[in-house]
Each structure stands twice: as C-alpha cells, then as structure tokens.
Design a protein around this nucleic acid. Structure first.
Lengths: 345, 345
DNA sequence: TTGAAAGCGCTAACAG
DNA sequence: CTGTTAGCGCTTTCAA
C-alpha cells in the first residue's frame, strides 16, 4: 500500500520525471499548473518520498553523524544541541554516536556512518594522536569537522576548537597575580589535547612571572567529580595539622571542581577565604553549587553550531575560508574566588 | 571509485547473490571456503555495503528515531543514553530529534523519520491529548513506543512510563504523615500527563487521611529553576512578618526544587528545619546542591533502555507480552527532609 | 515543458 | 551450493 512517485505520476497524468522535478522543486522544467496539480495530489495522498531510493540515486542522505564521548555529559549535550539546531534549519538529520572516549567504538561508528551514507561527520574524537579513521572519510570524500579535541596538528584538519591554552593561562594569571600564590592544578588525562594545552597555558603564565617551581603542584584526574574530590582530599589529608601546601586550586573541568569543593567543605576549609577555586567549562551546574563556581567558560553550544555551519559549508562543496575556528574562553568569576563579577541569583 | 557488491563478486569469481549471502551472513547457501575467500576480499578491499541500496531492497534501515523535548535536559539525555546503549547492541543507529515540547516540530520529525526509513520510533511526546501523528506511523506500520509522557489512554499505545501517581503519593505521604502539615505543591503544567498524575497522587494521599482543604496549596510552574524560585518567593513574600502558610514544599521536578531552595535560603528560612522540600526526578544535580535534595527518583536510564528493548521486540515482529511497562519511583531522602537515608558524600 | 529509459547497489525468489 | 533475474523508488541525462 506504499505510495510511490509513479502512483503520483499516474494520478496526475504525467511522467515520473515531472513529479521528481516538483519533488525537488526545480524552478525550470515544469509548467506552473502542472506543478500545482502535482503538489495537491501529493498533499492529498500524503505522499512521502523514499529516502532510500533518493539516496541511492543521488548518493546523499541529508543526514550527518555526530560522534561525541557521552551525551550524558552536559558539555556534550550542549554541543550536540548547537549542532542539531543549525543542521535542522538546513534540513539535515543527525545520527548520534556515543564513543565513551573509546577509539575503537569511534572507528566502528565512523564505519557505520559511512554505510548509512551520511553526508558529513562532526567528530569529537577520543584520541589526539591518530587520525587513521579519518582516512576512511577522506577516501569516500565525506566531509568532516573536528570539534573540541585536536587531532595531531590543528591546521591539518578542519575543526572548531576553543583556545585551551589561553583558558589555562587566564585562570593561572588570576591566581599567580596574587603574591605568595601556590597553585594546585588538577588537570585531566594528559593525553587529551585539551589537558595538554591547558597545562601549557598554566605553565606559560608561571614562566612569564618567573615563579619558583614550588608555586605549582600538578595532579591528574579523569574529569569526574570523584577524582576531583579524591585528589583534593589526598592533598589535604596528607598534611594534617600543618599548613596547606596550596592557596588555590585550578581544575581542568567543573565536575572535578565540584568534587574539590566537597573535599574542601568536608575539611572545613573556607572557600574562597582560605582557598580559591576555579573550574573549566562553565556547565549549568557551576551556577548551582554553593558557593557558585568561578570557572573558565567555554561556549559549548557555539562550538556545536559553528562546527555544523562549517560542515554545511563543506557539504555544499564550498571551500572553507579558514580551516580552523578557534573560539575564545573567558574567566567567569563567581563565588569561589575572592574577586567576583556575577551576583548570585 | 566506489566498491560495490559486483566488484567483490567479480574478484571472487562468484555471483552477486553469493556475496550478498555472506554479507548478510546467512548460514546456508555458501560453501565454507567460498565464504572465507569472499570475506577476505571484502576485508582487503575495505568494502562497505551501501545502506541505501540495502534499505531500498529490504525496506529496513537498522536505525530508529528518538524524539525528545530537549537533549540538554539531563533527564532526557539519560533516557537517550539508555536507549542508545541497547539499540547499539543490536546494530541499530539512532536519529536524534529535539521537539522543544512543540507538537508541530514533533510531527515534522515523525514525517522526516518516515522518509528516512527508520524501523521504529521512540517518542517522548510534547502533547498528551492527541495521537494524530501516531496514525502516520501506524499507516506505514512502523512500530513505536511512547515513553515518559502518556498519550490518551495509557493502554492504547505501547509505552514505558513511570508511576507518576505513586510518585506523587509517596512524597505527599511523607509530608502528610506529619501532624499539622501544610503542603505547598508546585506542580508542572497541568496539561502534561506527568503533572496530572502526580497531582492525583498528592490529592489521593490527602483524601486518604481526611485532611482539610487548607492542608494543600497548589501552584503551577513550568519545570524551570526560575519558576520554582519565583513561585516560592511569591508565597513567602506575600506573608511578610506573619507565619508561613506552609510547612513543606513538594515540587514536580528537581529543577524547580532547586529554585525553591534558593528562594528559601534568600529568605533565611532553614531547610529542612523550618521547611522541608522534596523534588522529583533525581537528576545528578540533586545530589550536588546544598543541602542535597530529597526527591522522588525515577529511573531515566532504565526508561530509555526498556523502551528500546520493547521497540527491538516489536521491530523483530514479535508481539509484546505486555503493552505497557510501568516503572516504579522511590523516595530518596537526603538533606532537605528531616528524615534522611543517604549520607552525603 | 515534458517523457522515456537507464541506472544507483543491493536483496530475494527461482532455477539449476 | 551457486547463479540469474527482476525489482526496490527515485534521479537524471537525452530526446521529443
């Protein structure tokens, strides 16, 4: 009982070709009243063209794949939302893939997406060193844009990033500009380009000021609340009784910062009076904890929309004016730093 | 330069049919060594079958559409994740659609999904009264399962729900069992089946106990933090100086509860000593506010996975043993009630 | 402005 | 066990 283009053609007393033309609303090639008639019949009968057939004939699907580590992470869900909004406007649908930071799953997904015939891919990659699965995409001439995580040389692939180095430097500068500052920097896994660059920013800020090595302690977490809690807790408890070995903490994401806040509260260390804390990301949660978290804000939604726009551009066959977009971060000072700029709700 | 099944067939010196058989790894119909050889050639050449062609031939796409209000809402992203995990295991991909609670967008998406040839749909509908777009799905014989929001009669369509009435009753019972309780119930939009049922639960608990009408004040918010804040704030400020008109607040979701907490704190009303608060959902955020929020927990991840399982079942052409799954809620008492069960981290 | 016809790459009878 | 063949529903030259 499926309606096809031939059915419409028969009812309208024209050929399939004509129906196809109005379906793709081509300006030329169809008389205005023929078009009108066909349009009406399509509406009356509730005709819906088959994406398969169209895809097979044209090689395009009006859909793109988005691969991210985990949609449950609010940062990524914002990113996806940003992408979906702009893709939808151009009629594209979106395949969601959660890689769980697993490069193997990621490759599987790339492969699946190709089979499905997506017209493009937005990829927040699990790994920074190897662009091997990108070759697949290149081979099939499927455009893609990287987002968030840099793979190899940033200029090598089209991508939308945030200036992580600057972000790190921003937070570090805030801290290091205070005399006698001793900073505990809890970074994410150093293999990630983000972690790497944030650390470079911190170290750069330190070098600029000729600070002694003791001004900075670095630890590595895994971006989870627990790890922020754990690492902070360890630092505190190790020196029981004695003076704290740090005056401030910078954490490479907000989740870890929230963990740190918990550990600090538990140890009865006043924030921001005794210890100041800055996170990274600026997820909604940051405004909701007590005190509200100061953080380096990055525009997740915009990263999504920008990468989608770039992809749209590429899918349209146009050359990108610039292959790489670097978005800026900014420091949002709330309740966990002595300086503030936003008033809490 | 695209590899097709014919290329493989030629290289292997067999017919397309044979290649097709191994591609779909049918047990019968291919000699073991022929199969081996073909498999190798496919691997070597990096052959990837065209989903379009396959879809056109079989009418199936190994993909399903998921329509939710907004992926940014942590409740829905959990739900989606639950669905994706089980779908992936069976080789299905997932099309993500954000309806923004807009029934029009929702219909558009349903239509798009049909065009795309999805094999099934998971739908968290924007509206409770009209199942009109479901007819489209019915016509095309595309299975679907409703989730979270009930449309019309729950038994009419297959679906996975949470027992919202019970959830409302649970929270109400906790409050109403305290002598002299006066409850402020801030519900969501009453058009939503969830709001409707939660309210029924609350009212049921009240009737059971023969409480006077004054024991319950009801207000309606829109599920946002702001509305929780606003409505609570109004209630408080209206009676300046005088006694509070309520001893406890139940809010139909956690976001509003967090808003209420803010308003209470601002008015220097101690929680839970002066006023107890219970939310609904149990999103991650609930554990992170101060004090951690007591709430009616609903299993978002499980709702996603269950609905995906049901859909898988239907797509396999099997009959469902039960058309409707009703998941249970439970009361999670944390820091905003005088009784507690969980110790904060 | 319109139509005829040849695919797009795969599956699924049906034969052999 | 394997091959032949006829589509699946649409697009797209090329002719008319």
């Amino acid at each position: 009982m499926k309606l096809t283009i031939s059915d419409i053609a028969r009812q309208a007393g024209v050929s399939k070709a004509t129906v196809s033309r109005v379906l793709n609303n081509r300006a030329e090639g169809v008389g205005p009243q023929t078009r009108q008639r066909i349009l009406e019949i399509m509406k009356e009968t509730g005709f819906q063209p088959s994406g398969f057939a169209r895809g097979l004939a044209t090689g395009r699907s009006a859909s793109v794949g988005v691969i991210i580590p985990d949609i449950v992470n609010p940062y990524y869900s914002l990113l996806v939302r940003g992408a979906e909004d702009v893709l939808k406007k151009s009629g594209y649908g979106l395949f969601l893939c959660n890689s769980d930071h697993d490069i193997v799953k990621e490759k599987e997904y790339v492969s699946k997406l190709i089979e499905r015939g997506v017209d493009g891919v937005i990829l927040d990659s699990a790994e920074s060193d190897c662009g091997c699965h990108l070759e697949l995409l290149d081979e099939k001439k499927i455009p893609y844009v990287l987002v968030d995580r840099i793979i190899e040389d940033p200029s090598k692939y089209p991508g939308v990033y945030v200036d992580n180095r600057e972000g790190g430097a921003l937070a570090a500068a805030y801290f290091f500009d205070q005399p006698g500052c001793r900073l505990l920097f809890i970074n994410g896994p150093i293999e990630y380009s983000q972690s790497h660059l944030r650390q470079a920013g911190v170290e750069g800020a330190m070098r600029q000021r000729d600070l002694p090595a003791e001004a900075l302690i670095i630890r590595y977490g895994d971006f989870s609340i627990e790890s922020g809690f754990q690492l902070t807790h360890e630092m505190i408890s190790r020196m029981d009784g004695q003076e704290l070995p740090f005056t401030s903490i910078f954490l490479a994401n907000d989740l870890m910062a929230i963990g740190a806040l918990r550990a600090l509260k538990r140890a009865n260390i006043a924030v921001p009076d005794q210890v100041e804390v800055i996170g990274f990301d600026d997820i909604e949660l940051a405004t909701l904890v007590e005190p509200p978290l100061s953080t380096v804000s990055q525009p997740a939604l915009e990263m999504g929309s920008r990468s989608a726009s770039m992809l749209l551009h590429m899918m349209a066959g146009k050359k990108l004016r610039e292959k790489t977009v670097m978005l800026k971060t900014h420091l949002t000072l709330r309740g966990t730093t002595r300086e503030k700029q936003e008033s809490a709700l």
